[in-house]
Amino acid sequence: MQQIQKRKLPHYFNNAHQEFEAAKLGMWAFMAQEILFFSGLFVAYGVFRYFNPEMFIYASRLLDWKLGFINTIFLIISSFTMVMSVYHIQHNNRTKSLVNLTATFFLAAVFLIIKTFEYKAKFDHGYYPGMLFSGEGAFSSLHIFFGLYFTITGLHALHIIVGMVLIAWLMVRVWNGTVSAEYFTPVEMVGLYWHFVDVVWIFLFPLLYLL
């Protein structure tokens, strides 16, 4: 692990606390934007559940809820390890923070791997999204559910990949010392983003798998 590097305060801020608060406010504004982004998907889900309720119940039976459950558990653990890494960096023990970060990274990777298994299982039954849908099913509008399912979980998975890239970038910064107890803003911000991605999955799991 390299030495912690001193950081010069940008000229337009007059103290570190102001800079941290401004960064956090900016991050929360970005979180508000993400909430609205996913709200569009939840409204689409709600609208089409209203249009054909029985089909949604029938279709959610086709999904394997055990995999979804394990995924939820993994994401919650990854949220916990992310928070612990923020906690440790605030106490300046960088090794523990790095360990937690790597744990978060691998949990996210496992989540994606499980996701690919689920997708493969769907494809085997022919439940491709939209146009290429050739699956059997008791309802003729089944393709809408799987179109929505792939769109929502696909966009969520995309956010997880972006999260993993950010965590990797954080691991590098913890390693080369540009992040420490004085300046841990990036860690806190990526933590906020990661918790948001976890919260979206917390809502997705019951809506898609259990109802």
Binding site: E34, L36, G40, M131, I144
Partner: peptide, 22 residues
């Protein structure tokens, strides 16, 4: 407001390419 435009356009593109039928 702008993120809702972003999601609308993403859904439009998916609808146009894969035709998921929403």
């Amino acid at each position: 407001a702008t993120p809702v435009l972003a999601i609308t356009l993403v859904l439009l593109m998916i609808e146009r390419v894969w035709g998921i039928g929403i």
